[in-house]
Design a binder for these strands. Structure first.
Length: 580
RNA sequence: GCUGGCGUAGCUCAGUCGGUAGAGCAGCUGAUUUGUAAUCAGCGGGUCGGGGGUUCGAAUCCCUUCGCCAGCUCCA
């Protein structure tokens, strides 16, 4: 995404504004809770926050009081004053103030001098910059209270975080608050129930999805699409079992590294683990016979249903569940083929993202401190990923040390219709599992060689992807993905026969049709079909029957047209083919 | 898992000071045969998330457990 110079400047000034607002909030909190200890208070993408160590827990009413305090500070139009202190001076200063978190921060700063900012009676360690004075904060609002660990580490004390946002005008703030409301309307948990797509119920278990007929249809359409696309790209479809012997998980290292996330069971004295990943069966297929370099690359694809015991607090609708279906593949190839394979996967991801209309960006994560494998392998794998990105001219950010313990990876973050990022696709290089399972191929020199394994998903998990899709389209799926594509509505029960006739003809063409023949007013039927977000309604009255036409009403344009059935079928088929 | 909030009819929600539960929508029945976002009338529906306690009496107070929500940490 290109930012013009103005936009960049605007982003910067907004950051400064919000960061300044967080200082003002801290001041207001200090006025109410004199003993407060301050942690950090940065600006973030949508606003700002500040973490506090407070003598008591905050309640929502506190936010109003703090907002009032902030408004007073803004009204006074107090200047932000910057000054420099020697590190030792600063430490002494914050010791006197009883601010242990600030001292910890100062001790970690490399420079001999640190800057502090004063606004009113509040002095904070801060790199800056800030707005000139508090009067420049024209519009702000505190949004929520949450717990947050000091320095983001769950072993540390949990502090109280207040989130807020600030803008240069009231109008912009209102627009932002409207966007938040809009996002709530698109929430896939809400739409999932309203559109009768799926349910998640305590009776079954937290994080376990039940697909209702329409949700199952949506999933099937995506699965069919994926199978076709994978076959086209030289993948072979395979299936592995859900339950695999515990010994196998011990061999793979999952038992040591991933046990907390796995479910185990015992049958006739034999211990089994429920698969949290699909790779083991794929490797066993590879190992089921001797492979030649001529066979490579081998690409096994599985829509594999895995279970992971996610911590209870992280579950969220379809986007974070305990049982989910990955569009998983493992590619076994020679080191020489690595680059080409990675490029193929990236192109696959791009094709699919474009088709669904998602923007995306890619991130390359390199070797973490805690990792296995030789430096040479890591370099080769990292270069392969990096070269592939460069050759395809894909800009990416590098996250040093964020790779998996067995290899570096490319993560793809897609951006939905209202600008939120989601992790779906990931491409990971792995030298460890081929080693542990002693995978090899016979090379052209007659020597056994070790293949490289790529783990990759394109959509990630179908559950998460479907959740994201629901929100992306706000439930109004494009025709090819709509569980019901056409709904037939009759004016009176005189048209029931004609309606069944039309319905059968559409079904015969593979169009997904529903009929509403109830003795209800057309207004009601249309209202309900609209709420169900059906792309096309066919309204049938005496007039249509007499003329052998249908009155077509479009969800997206609201347009009404009288058409012949054959023309309608042609139009629908064209649109389905174009997948829009 | 952690911090805080919340769990009342299928859904959205009300329920005062502790005195035995209510609305709208949905559902069912009947009437209505209707032209582009809600026809009218009647009826049924609840172990107030589960368990335990306090009390003459608990949706309401306390404990515990499960789940949900907002974050944190983790992640497809």
């Amino acid at each position: 995404m290109d930012h013009s110079k103005n936009e960049i400047e605007e982003d910067d000034s907004q950051d400064i504004l919000r960061h300044s607002a967080s200082h003002i909030m801290a001041h207001a909190v200090m006025d109410i809770f004199p003993g407060v200890k301050f942690a950090i208070g940065p600006s973030i993408e949508e606003g700002f926050y500040y973490d506090f160590d407070l003598p008591r827990n905050l309640v929502p009413e506190d936010l109003l009081k703090i907002e009032e305090g902030m408004q007073k500070l803004v009204d006074q139009d107090l200047p932000f004053k910057r000054s420099l202190l020697q590190k030792e001076e600063a430490i002494r200063f914050f010791e006197e103030k009883g601010q242990p978190y600030k001292i910890e921060l100062i001790n970690d700063l490399p420079d001999s001098q640190v800057s502090i900012y004063q606004v009113g009676d509040f002095i904070d360690l801060c790199r800056g910059p800030h707005v000139a004075s508090t009067g420049m904060i024209k519009a702000f609002k505190l949004l929520s209270i949450a717990g947050a660990y000091w320095r983001g580490d769950e072993r540390n004390k949990m502090l109280q975080r207040i989130y807020g946002t600030a803008f240069t005008s009231k109008k912009m703030l209102d627009k932002h608050l409207e966007r938040i409301e809009e996002a709530k309307k698109r929430d896939h948990r809400k739409l999932g129930r309203e559109l009768d797509l799926f349910s998640i119920t305590d009776e079954v278990g937290a994080g376990m999805v039940i697909y209702h007929p329409k949700g199952a249809m949506l999933r099937m359409l995506i699965e069919d699409f994926e199978k076709k696309e994978h076959l086209r790209r030289g993948y072979q479809i395979v299936y592995g079992p859900t339950l695999l012997k515990q010994e196998l998980w011990e061999k793979s290292g999952h038992y040591d590294n991933y046990r907390e996330n796995m479910y185990f069971t015992e049958v006739e004295g034999q211990a089994y683990g429920i698969k949290p990943m699909n790779c083991l069966a794929h490797m066993l297929i590879y190992k089921s016979r001797i492979r030649s370099y001529r066979d490579l690359p081998i690409r096994y694809f599985e829509l594999g249903h895995v279970h992971r015991h996610e911590k209870s607090g992280v579950l969220h609708g379809l986007t974070r569940v305990r049982g989910f279906t990955q569009d998983d593949a493992h590619i076994l190839c020679t080191p020489d083929q690595l680059n080409q394979e990675i490029k193929g996967i990236i192109q696959f991801v791009i094709d699919v993202m474009d088709m669904f209309g998602f923007q995306y960006h890619m991130e390359l994560s390199t070797r973490p401190e805690k990792s296995i494998g030789s430096e040479e392998d890591w370099d080769r794998a990292t270069n392969a990923l990096n070269n592939a990105l460069e050759e395809l001219k894909i800009p990416s950010r590098i996250f040093e040390g964020e790779g998996a313990f067995y290899g570096p990876k490319i993560d793809v973050k897609l951006k939905d219709a209202i600008g939120r990022d989601w992790q779906c696709a990931t491409i990971q290089c792995d030298f460890t599992l081929p080693e542990r399972f002693d995978l090899f191929y016979m090379d052209n020199d007659g020597e056994k060689k070790r293949p490289v394994m790529l783990h990759r998903v394109i959509l990630g998990s179908l559950e998460r992807f479907i959740g994201v899709l629901i929100e992306h389209y706000a439930g109004a799926f494009p025709l090819w993905l709509s569980p019901v594509q056409v709904k037939i509505l009759t004016i009176t029960d005189r048209q029931s026969g004609y309606a069944c006739d039309i319905s059968e003809k559409l079904l015969a063409e593979g169009i997904r049709v529903e009929k509403d023949l109830r003795n209800e007013k057309i207004g009601l039927k249309i209202r309900e079909a609209r709420l169900e977000k059906v792309p096309y309604m066919l309204i049938l009255g005496d007039k249509e029957e007499k003329n052998s036409t249908v009155n077509l009403r479009s969800r997206d344009t609201g347009e009404l047209t009288d058409v012949k059935l054959s023309d309608l079928i042609k139009k629908l088929e064209e649109q389905i083919h174009l997948k829009n």
